[in-house]
């Protein structure tokens, strides 16, 4: 269908729609308010909860820092605290970016740009988190071993017995990291293309 034909069909459809008005006052207000109670902040809730959990864990580790006996477990705790802090702050930063999208006031171009930038940052952040997670895997095992079973892996556990499970864990994590990284790499590329297209 060419544009001119589409314009004719569109105008015929518009006239028919004018005759088929279906909404009532009650239904309109129900739509406006039902959505408000059920949907608002639903998307953002998970990210907020994630940030709260990270902060709570940081506090817990710091309060119990004296339990870490060896310098290796102390270093693991420090690495984990820094990682969790960066992840929480990053998550809150993304939340702020998301909230900066004002659907009622921005125009389409601005909305798309903001969405694409949010997507870009999210993809970069998640890609980075996967890679960091890979390195923090060992540190977190050492920290939680101290916190939850009172055993300092570096002093009390025979690390040679842990080699096979750890290699296995690293392989699984490596596969997840590779797939995740590819997925977020693709998202990042898509977001970048949209931004470039808008800036044409």
């Amino acid at each position: 269908m060419e544009l001119e034909e589409m314009q004719i069909a569109w105008s015929q459809m518009s006239s028919e729609l004018e005759k088929q008005k279906q909404l009532t006052d009650e239904l309109i207000m129900k739509m406006a308010q039902q959505q408000y109670t059920s949907k608002i902040n639903k998307i953002l809730r998970a990210e907020r909860v994630g940030a709260i959990i990270c902060f709570a864990t940081i506090i817990y580790i710091l309060v119990n820092f004296t339990k870490f006996q060896s310098w290796q477990s102390q270093a693991s705790a420090v690495i984990l605290v820094i990682t969790l802090f960066v992840m929480s702050v990053g998550s809150l930063f993304l939340l702020k970016k998301m909230k900066a999208i004002n659907l009622q006031q921005d125009n389409l171009s601005t909305t798309i740009k903001k969405f694409s930038k949010y997507k870009k940052y999210t993809s970069q952040f998640q890609r980075g988190s996967i890679l960091v997670g890979f390195f923090v895997l060992f540190a977190s095992s050492a920290v939680f071993s101290v916190l939850f079973s009172g055993k300092d892996m570096f002093l009390e556990v025979d690390l040679t017995k842990m080699i096979i499970p750890m290699i296995f864990g690293l392989i699984i994590f490596g596969i997840i990291a590779y797939l995740g990284s590819r997925f977020y790499g693709k998202s990042l590329k898509e977001a970048q293309l949209i931004i470039e297209d808008l800036e044409d």
């Binding site: 739509m31 039902q34 009622q104």
Partner: peptide
């Protein structure tokens, strides 16, 4: 459709 009505209601005061 619901989402649009909801967003319009949300922004109605600022319009």
């Amino acid at each position: 459709y619901q989402d649009i009505v909801f967003q319009l209601w949300k922004g109605f005061d600022s319009f």
